[in-house]
Design a protein around this nucleic acid. Structure first.
Lengths: 103, 103
DNA sequence: CGCTCATATGCCTATCAAGGAATACAGGCC
DNA sequence: GGCCTGTATTCCTTGATAGGCATATGAGCG
């Protein structure tokens, strides 16, 4: 139940593929199994990790579970990147000023 | 020599701490050992991972190695986030329009 | 050249995560 | 209630990795 580190969750390429797919549309487990070409248990386990870390939510529709992305953990990652982003933005500004001064 | 996945590199909390520190100023290995309260070999190993993934560069200054951050891999991570960022931006826009229509 | 400081590397161990196969569980349907 | 479909969970094996300790390497300096 301990909230797992968002970066650790994203470290798994398969989980990023799942998110990339859910970004376009919500999907059932079976859809994801087809799309990923992996065993159903493997997919379910990744979904469990994603669920417990808050990256996805799921609802029950008849005998299927429909998974949907939740963006909040990704925004946390984006926030962590903030200070770094400011760094390269500053560098770009400096470059721009430099180029302007060359005119 | 195989370029390791940037997300896998960032999955280690200690490595993120190293980056957070190098973001403020470049440092020698000894500086980082003091700052992190970890054994020197452990720090050197994390630096090796960061180096091979391109997150840091290092130069030799006398008997020290001075490590410096390189932002490029982080920009790659930022790029991966791009489509998701557009999603929540779109949601914010929708919310804004909704609030406007409530006036 | 021997010594020392700063850093890197090797070896070892413990932990953990991923994937497969088998199985359990749950919701519809007859 | 029995059966089928879809999904979750358990068990097991295997590979990767972090960290400590000991040791190697390498640059300066007497």
């Amino acid at each position: 139940m301990v909230s797992v580190d968002a970066f650790a969750v994203l470290a798994e390429p398969t989980r990023r593929r799942i998110l990339d797919r859910l970004r376009r549309s919500e999907s059932s487990v079976g859809d994801l199994v087809d799309a990923l070409g992996m065993s159903q248990p493997a997919v379910s386990k990744h979904l469990k990790v994603l669920r417990e870390a808050g990256f996805v939510t799921c609802r029950t529709a008849a005998q299927q579970r429909i998974y949907r992305i939740d963006l909040r953990p990704l925004r946390a990652v984006d926030d962590w990147l903030g200070p770094y982003r400011r760094m390269w933005a500053a560098h770009l500004d400096a470059l721009e000023r430099h180029l302007d001064s060359q005119e």
